[in-house]
């Protein structure tokens, strides 16, 4: 069973304590200026967006089948069984394919460092492994961000929509998006208003490339046989011609035929 986060925007009061707790947990600096920044960056893994009296969190969705982990050539990004998508900076060579591949635009890069790393929320893997909730869920004063088993949280989210249908958009964001994510969102305003794409495929993205990649082991011996066979046939003609005491004519004849 994997863990997940449920964020209910209707319960959020925009106190931004989750931002601060996240910065502390990940040893990032946090002050009023950073608190005012309304976007995720290499020094801000999660952000509470404000639109009049509505709020919405953004953080790594920690996909069930993450595109970033599937494209990483060195396996620096990984989906753990417990839920978090972790990052091993010692493996990363900085190709940034994860950033290009992520459907949510989550991974950020330390552009201004000579030896940069990818930066993103990794769903507090150490805390989760120790049976504790993520830093953001633990600090949340209203329970807007809730940590638990993914299946339980889905049930709870469905129940909340069922009991207060007028209060919510009838959609649990992250339930099916790109095959499901470990972060689930509820909102009273359409998700697009906070920049969440609702046109994402229900199928996990990695299958798109793996469908092609998985054919390679079959293709290599097949291609080898085919090319080897062609070589054998084309050169055998010459040998036969030579054995019969003629000059290999294949080419000249070919050329003559082609002459208009």
């Amino acid at each position: 069973m994997s863990k997940a986060l449920l964020y209910d925007a209707t319960m959020c009061i925009g106190c931004k304590q989750c931002e601060q707790a996240c910065a502390t947990q990940n040893k990032l600096s946090y002050d009023d200026a950073i608190a005012a920044e309304e976007r995720q960056s290499d020094h801000k893994y999660t952000v509470v967006l404000t639109k009049s009296d509505k709020f919405m969190r953004r953080l790594c969705m920690n996909c069930q089948e993450p595109a970033c982990a599937s494209v990483c050539p060195v396996g620096a990004l990984r989906k753990t069984a417990a839920g978090p998508v972790t990052y091993d900076e010692n493996r990363c060579m900085g190709c940034r394919y994860c950033m290009v591949a992520c459907p949510f635009g989550v991974p950020k890069y330390e552009w201004n460092k000579v030896l940069p790393k990818v930066q993103k929320c990794t769903m507090c893997p150490d805390r989760v492994a120790a049976g504790k909730p993520t830093a953001c869920a633990e600090i949340c004063p209203t329970g807007a961000t809730k940590f638990g088993e993914r299946d339980d949280l889905i049930n709870e989210a469905q129940q909340r929509i069922r009991e207060n249908p007028g209060q919510y958009v009838n959609h649990i964001y992250g339930l099916t998006e790109v095959g499901g994510t470990s972060v689930l969102l509820l909102s009273s305003v359409p998700f697009e208003e906070f920049g969440y794409r609702t046109d994402l495929s229900k199928d996990p993205l990695p299958i798109l490339t793996y469908r092609v990649l998985s054919r390679i082991p079959d293709f290599v011996p097949l291609g080898g046989m085919l090319l080897g066979g062609v070589w054998w046939i084309t050169h055998r003609r010459e040998e036969v011609a030579a054995a019969e005491g003629q000059h290999p004519k294949g080419d000249t004849k070919d050329q003559q035929e082609r002459k208009p």
Partner: peptide, 21 residues
């Protein structure tokens, strides 16, 4: 590459699901 001196990493750190690999 952000860290070009690690260009050899795919040699030993393999992810066969990655096109880049």
């Amino acid at each position: 590459l952000g860290r070009p001196y690690r260009i050899w990493h795919p040699l030993i750190m393999r992810n066969p699901h990655s096109v880049m690999f």
